[in-house]
């Protein structure tokens, strides 16, 4: 083998793994996952916020940028004295980092670590309730990493101070963010005039989901321990409707079923039938003449 051929062969031999590495899709993703784009740290800030207060801080995941920006104002009122790693207890500089789900769950349930008797703060009780709830069981027993954590309802950084009446009132308006975005069907059919429709139009006297269903200890309504179980419903009603008895609690079944009542109404059945007939006739006519509606 001539020297020239040997040099070409050895060049190919060296270049091959490098080319394979750079042109393979997985390599491209792997390379991008750890790519961080940010400007210089904010002057006067220390710790994590040096970088995370930068709005331009993004991380590429599967080719898409994900913002890693943290607004310090979000926790300036609540948890102002709590440091980032108090919640992000699994923070590490090591090369093997926790998965995104783990990262979310650890931070999202870190409330359980916090109690301060002087300030009368003890999140352990709420966590104990959560652990027994349907959400907690999904996460802790079934290991469903997408199950709601504390932060799933209370938010990760912008957590409201619920001991403050104003903040509490604001939080009560967030039932869609807290419950509705996951339980879309129940959110949509929560539209009886007294409760749901009123709530959705800003009535302060209308109840958000957790007033009836409970908050940390939430259970499936079929569970006899659930506050919305038919056997216990009157207690829930009595919170607002003094002296409510079991017969009154029967109304509860209509809170999520006004749509059904409308559908079952004879007059509405006739109207829907006529509307369907008109719609079908229109479609037939347009189909026959091949009219394309603009």
């Amino acid at each position: 083998m001539s020297t020239k051929r040997l040099s070409i062969f050895s060049t190919i031999l060296v270049m091959m793994p490098i080319l394979i590495f750079f042109f393979s899709p997985s390599a491209a993703i792997a390379a991008k996952v750890e790519t961080l784009t940010f400007t210089i740290g904010i002057p006067g800030k220390t710790g994590c916020l040096v970088c995370h207060q930068d709005k331009a801080l993004v991380k590429y995941e599967l080719g898409k940028p994900r913002s890693l920006y943290v607004n310090p104002e979000d926790f300036s009122r609540t948890h102002a004295e709590v440091t980032c790693i108090d919640c992000h207890t699994d923070f590490t500089y090591k090369s093997i980092k926790p998965s995104r789900e783990d990262w979310r769950v650890v931070a999202g349930t870190s409330c359980k670590n916090c109690h301060d008797e002087k300030k009368k703060i003890d999140h352990r009780k709420n966590y104990a309730d959560y652990r027994e709830s349907i959400h907690g069981r999904r996460l802790l027993v079934e290991k469903n990493m997408n199950a709601p954590t504390c932060a799933g309802c209370h938010n990760f950084h912008r957590i409201r101070r619920l001991s403050d009446p104003v903040e509490m009132m604001e939080f009560r308006k967030e039932a869609y963010q807290v419950c509705g975005r996951c339980h879309q069907d129940y959110w949509d059919n929560y539209n009886d005039w007294f409760h749901g429709k009123g709530y959705k139009h800003g009535a302060p006297d209308a109840p958000p989901c957790w007033d009836c269903h409970g908050a940390h200890n939430i259970l499936n309504s079929k569970d006899s321990n659930s506050p919305t179980n038919i056997s216990r419903l009157q207690d829930q009603c009595a919170k607002c409707h003094k002296d409510a008895d079991r017969a009154f609690a029967e109304y509860g079944r209509y809170i999520h079923s006004r749509n059904d009542l409308i559908r079952e109404n004879l007059v509405m059945k006739i109207i829907f039938t006529v509307l369907d007939f008109v719609k079908n006739s229109y479609q037939r006519v347009t189909g026959y003449f091949k009219i394309v509606p603009s």
Partner: peptide, 21 residues
């Protein structure tokens, strides 16, 4: 049927009939 069960149904009828009227 209990009164508290009947009332929402009546309400529904009243809503529909009166709005149509």
């Amino acid at each position: 049927m209990k009164l508290s069960q009947l009332i929402p149904i009546i309400y529904n009828w009243v809503d529909i009939v009166c709005l149509i009227l």
